[in-house]
Design a protein around this nucleic acid. Structure first.
Lengths: 253, 253
DNA sequence: CGTGCGCTTGATTGAGCTCAACGCGCGTGG
DNA sequence: CCACGCGCGTTGAGCTCAATCAAGCGCACG
């Protein structure tokens, strides 16, 4: 953790920038194509988008991609791996805002200021595409369909946060964890992974912080779900046995 | 309430569209100019923005500007009055997402879908400028500074929601109410109103729903604050006597 | 083989919810 | 004019769910 005392970009760090020449950065070849920024853009437009992607960056597990207070210059598309984003004001107050996986965009909160207002930490060895924001903005004026898509992505982020507000504002501990698992399940399914069996990349503490619960409460809910035979598996390995039960729990607020 | 059984726009309703000719809709003359979409745009650009504002609409207190499920076609800038926006999934689950006042933009959650995912209800007789989204998007490609500003507004909305997530995830009842009052205070101040003395436009129930508390808890917190001489005034009329005390409460999580 | 981290489980506590009663202002109708 | 109902807010009593405090387990790593 001490190694992440400074931001990953623009400083000596364990992050490994990958030159465009050495490895294919082609959006067209990227498996996340359909989920990421380049979605619904023509081949021709795609070339122009690829041209502004300055580099791919590897972020080892536990390292910080950017931190709150860093100058905002770029968005990042997760190419591989998982991140958590943390909002904090003051030293003691921290809230995990989300867990991002491949194809998702990081850093949109930074646009409104000159600096990031969140930190992004890799939950495992990960890789992102850096999208210099100034160049993206000028490209958007030239490619209306990309602009429309970009706006949809920002709007979807707003919508995602509304769902979390509902969760934090009015759901029980059991409902929160169930909703959390179902959300992960759906996102893995979209990515071609099993929706029934996946690995949690985050600790119980991360989950608790995200859901507004203590680590003990999270653990107890997992135990309860396992006792009900709704779930099985070791702490990080989750098998959903009774999806319907989890869904019922969420709707019957 | 029965009168609001259908959306306000495009149907017989109590909403009163105001033709552009009859009343000045000039952004330049609008007192919210500096807080609203037209901020940091040149005079020339301002004309073009005004041209796409199709109409102003009056929404009487308690009426709905748009509701979840309505087709999304426009954003709305609050010109006068106050709104609450409500996210709901299922019949029972409701979460108030925010209280919007003059100069703030409504409807950005709708961009990602063809339909709104929130409802917006006027808390008092209010007036909005309708901004047809398709026309705005094409204007954005032509006016880079407006585009940049629009992105900042969406990003600011994301940031605002992060703050609420922090509040809902880890603050006590007292802290939530204090943060809520300070937030209103700041926003009134920016608008040229007293930050120490203002009128709450929403019920205790609305506040409770927004802050993830019951109506009784909200009431108790207000009573406690009054007993401490941090606050005075009748239920809806708030005078902040000890701002520092409220601020302390929020930082000392 | 100890040490520390992540996780679980149990016992106890407490903040906020639930349920209930009541007050107040206001509009409506007798 | 008052009686009444109603929406909104306050207050109290008791309860509950999740937090806190505490102990212990399993496993990776030096």
């Amino acid at each position: 953790m001490q190694r992440s005392a400074k931001g990953m970009l623009g400083g000596a760090s364990t992050a490994v920038p990958i030159s465009i020449g050495s490895i294919s950065t082609s959006c067209a070849n990227c498996s996340m194509h359909e989920l990421c920024l380049p979605a619904v853009v023509t081949d021709d437009d795609l070339d122009r988008l690829e041209n502004i992607l300055s580099k791919r960056v590897r972020i080892p597990r536990g390292e910080t991609l950017y931190r709150s207070g860093d100058v905002f210059t770029s968005l990042f598309a997760v190419r591989l791996g998982h991140f958590k984003t943390i909002y904090s004001e003051g030293p003691a107050t921290k809230q995990i805002i989300g867990f991002q996986m491949s194809g998702e965009i990081l850093g949109m909160e930074g646009i409104s200021h000159t600096r990031h207002k969140c930190s992004a930490v890799a939950l495992e060895d990960s890789e992102v595409c850096e999208i210099p924001y100034a160049r993206l903005e000028s490209l958007l004026t030239e490619l209306p369909s990309l602009q429309a898509h970009f706006h949809r992505m920002m709007s979807r982020e707003i919508d995602r946060e509304h769902q979390i507000m509902l969760l934090l504002g009015s759901m029980s501990a059991d409902q929160r964890v169930a909703a959390f698992l179902l959300n992960l399940s759906r996102r893995y399914e979209v990515r071609g992974f099993s929706p029934h069996h996946f690995v949690l990349r985050m600790t119980r503490e991360d989950i608790g912080n995200y859901l507004g619960l203590t680590i003990e409460s999270v653990s107890r809910v997992f135990s309860r779900f396992k006792k009900n035979d709704w779930l099985e598996g070791s702490p990080r390995d989750v098998k959903i046995l009774d999806r319907a039960a989890l869904e019922d729990l969420c709707v019957n607020l």
